[in-house]
């Protein structure tokens, strides 16, 4: 079976400080994989290394068997990997509709076109509206994204991430800073939009992680100490000791 993502020996260091100390991770096609770990474990850094927001110091990342070494983010995105950001990363001055439309342009084959008019493409408008419907923002369609509520911006962020039809979706703390109702809404949304896709997510909320993930990896101080199904992780003594015990207690 081919893996959607193959990460081997990934390292990142700033001078003598090692942030990621050799990560090996294999994510199967179609699985929902969560990465958990205490604050400062390097979860976001790992995300940034995989998507080439930063260059790793050593190690390799393969997407569908293709080496991502030396590629820029836009090329990786075109190969079918899309990500969201921990801090909402949207186009605040554009309307919700325009945001989603921009996310669709490349995948719908417009590329660097300056000879076609966006308003005249019916498939484009319909596809954008379908995604807005999916993320429940239809009533906000023509409002500048910058004035949306926090939860709505997070939903838009997910919309931008999935719009291009990438088959590997990476979400960085999609429910950070949300109330319980908002979290339920986002989890439902993630479940809905990642059907038949590979999902990699970083998350702090254990309820979300154990409810959503097929497999979980625990990252502590730049190293993965355990990978397995939610049950295995829950029962793993090393994880209990290093991290989960406190987190689960806090949850209950």
């Amino acid at each position: 079976m081919t893996h959607a993502l193959d990460i081997s020996g990934l390292k990142k260091s700033y001078g003598k400080a090692e942030i990621i100390r050799g990560v090996d991770l294999h994510i199967t096609k179609g699985e929902r994989h969560a990465i958990i770990g205490p604050n400062g474990a390097g979860k976001s850094t790992l995300f940034n290394l995989i998507t080439r927001r930063m260059a790793p110091s050593a190690g390799k990342v393969h997407l569908h068997g293709q080496d991502l070494n030396g590629l820029v983010p836009c090329k990786i995105n075109r190969m079918g990997l899309s990500r969201s950001f921990q801090i909402s990363n949207i186009f605040p001055r554009m309307s919700v509709f325009e945001n989603i439309r921009c996310a669709l342009l490349w995948s719908m084959g417009f590329r660097y076109s300056f000879w076609s008019l966006v308003d005249r493409s019916k498939p484009l408008t319909e596809a954008a509206d379908a995604i807005i419907e999916q993320i429940n923002l239809t009533s906000r369609r023509n409002i500048p994204a910058g004035v949306l509520s926090y939860a709505e911006q997070r939903a838009l962020e997910i919309g931008l991430t999935i719009a291009g039809g990438a088959d590997v979706v990476m979400l960085d703390e999609p429910t950070a800073g949300m109330s319980n109702t908002e979290t339920d809404y986002i989890v439902e949304l993630i479940r809905k939009v990642t059907v038949d896709k590979t999902l990699v997510m970083v998350e702090h909320d254990m309820g979300v992680v154990f409810g959503l993930a097929d497999r979980i990896s625990v990252l502590v101080y730049g190293k993965i100490i355990a990978t397995g199904t939610p049950e295995e992780i829950r029962a793993n003594p090393t994880v209990q000791e290093a991290y989960l015990g406190t987190a689960i207690k806090a949850e209950q």
Binding site: V72, N77, N89, I90, F91, R93, W106
Partner: peptide, 11 residues
């Protein structure tokens, strides 16, 4: 508005 986001959308 956001060059980084545009990069992660394929442009």
């Amino acid at each position: 508005d956001n060059p980084e986001r545009a990069e992660f959308l394929g442009y």
